[in-house]
Nucleic acid binder design. Structure first.
Lengths: 324, 324
DNA sequence: TTGTAAGCGTTATCAA
DNA sequence: TTGATAACGCTTACAA
């Protein structure tokens, strides 16, 4: 490993001069500067980040944390984060599961964007601080050093259900996601509220608890098919489960939307091909905005007002335009 | 930031004792050990990795590099890598684009898995060394410190084309990927070889240059539809382009497979729903194996024989079972 | 314009 | 069983 000393020796100068050259300080002669830079190239010298970080007491690295490998919209979020972070001279590391807390606490990163729901609020509250701002996605944490960025689930879900009702649907089923997650709660609440506003009763037996995975939607639909009569419309808390349900119906000769309508939430890649009516979340933008707020907070602005991202409804033919 | 000194002071011991406790050394009394550990918890002390890395001269962090956010199979590769790496006590950082070289050269990682084709062979040859082994995916680099893991494209592509011919297809079109990539070359070569073995001529005008993205497949199909007569079967170098082509045909009233058959390569998420005949690459396993070889090489074994992963064909109904 | 030296947090060596 | 001290590679006051 070639270090700053090797460069200094080869260039016949002191290490501090090399350091000054590399950091663009003005107190160094033109000819020495050129000589040093050439030597660096020749020896292919790269500064050791450990030394740098240790001295500086901080880094310029943003951390992004996720862990659910089944949902491909993460790639879009990462893309948005990556673009903003790179444009602003920061580095990005993405990490999963266990390494994450370590990378946050050990000065290897200077701020984090957290998507993984497995990372507990309590842990984040402990880690967040003046020198380590955090942005959390899909949940709200009240903490002067944590900015929350959430999708406005309630309004578009209301609009979606109201639209479905307007099209003549009256009997609903609901497939929910993990019950402790804020977004699932909000989507379900919107669903119930709109039904109530329209004097439509909803029976608890028409609720199916899923986990946002395709398989749980498939299972919910299978169970549903055992009951006396199908609902008109099965509302799913996300696309994966909606797609699972569509497959289950298809496998059992039940037509969508003629026999039953289905709606999802997310607008995942498959949704378009499957013709699934759903709510589109701007994921790239979500990542970009998250990175922007994080870096602004790292730089000293103290902005932790929760930020709501709006989503829009995509009507596709998993719902009939006009029920008979 | 609470450091080892603070812990030492609070516990009334020296920093070296704290260090010994934290690193599980045996030369420390039971009661001091307990006391120190308690203080660590109370103060929520986490060792600073920068100091550690500086002292050790290395880290336990593996780097994974990618940059094409459009292809969701990356998530599966990452998943495989993440599992192996975590099980073996290493940390994983994933990075994109520019940060990558920096993270490789600056002692922030101790080995890398490279998927991004934008990372040049030349650069990798410079970086790889005894203290920095590398694993590259989807290309072969000859270097005593670089292990190549490639998918065997040739054999399954041969089998696929032979199977299509057996089903009665004789007139082919081909949509290729980026022409400099090894996997594209190999897929195309297999295609040509099998045609030749079967005395089927292939005209250059039936070749369309794409870039692995859906849009280029769509465009290729549009161009194809302008010609006098369609081929029987359009072979695409990957699924994205095959799906683009399917959409183009669908949008123009041409039926798949009745009017034209289509094949892909990758078995991406959409392929199943679209009923695309394709070649399935075990991506999770690919990541897992890549991580395994990398860590073995970090630990001293010097294994750089190129590793070929086999893939298998999935016949779906984008190809007729038996052409009339 | 350049060099000397201290110090960042950690671990390893050696002495107590 | 413990503690003092040097060293890792870098930056930065300050001295020359």
């Amino acid at each position: 490993m070639v270090g700053i000393k090797d460069v200094a020796k080869a260039a016949g100068v002191s290490v501090s001069t090399v350091s000054n050259v590399l950091n663009g300080k003005s107190n160094v002669g033109e000819d020495t500067k050129v000589r040093v830079l050439n030597i660096c190239r020749e020896l292919s010298y790269y500064p050791n980040s450990a030394g740098k970080a240790l001295k500086a007491g901080k880094t310029n690295t943003i951390l992004f944390n996720f862990s659910d490998f089944d949902r491909s919209f993460f790639l879009k979020i990462i893309h948005g984060i990556s673009d903003y972070v790179n444009d602003n001279g920061y580095d990005l590391i993405i990490c999963t599961e266990k390494s994450c807390e370590k990378f946050m606490r050990s000065n290897l990163s200077c701020g984090g964007i957290i998507l993984d729901q497995k990372m507990k609020d309590e842990t984040l509250n402990k880690i967040a601080g003046n020198s380590y701002p955090i942005v959390v996605l899909d949940r709200i944490i009240e903490n002067p050093y944590i900015k929350s960025i959430v999708v406005n689930n309630y309004d578009p879900m209301c609009e979606l259900i109201q639209g479905v009702i307007k099209r003549g649907y009256r009997h609903f089923g609901f497939v929910g996601g993990p019950e402790h997650t804020d977004d699932n709660k909000e989507r379900y609440r919107a669903f119930r509220d709109v039904l109530e506003q329209n004097n439509i009763t909803f029976q608890q037996k028409s609720y199916f608890a899923g986990d946002y995975r395709e398989k749980s939607g498939y299972t919910a639909a299978k169970i549903l098919m055992l009951s006396q009569e199908l609902p008109d419309c099965l509302v799913c808390a996300n696309d994966n489960m909606a797609i699972g349900a569509m497959k289950a119906f298809r496998d059992n000769g039940i037509r969508v939307p003629e026999d039953i309508a289905i709606t999802g939430f997310d607008n995942c890649d498959l949704a378009e091909v499957m013709g699934l009516t759903t709510v589109s979340i701007p994921n790239y933008e979500r990542g970009y905005i998250a990175a922007r707020y994080l870096i602004e907070n790292i730089r000293g602005s103290r902005n932790v007002e929760p930020f709501k991202i709006s989503a829009k409804i995509l009507w596709r033919n998993s719902v009939l335009l006009k029920k008979k």
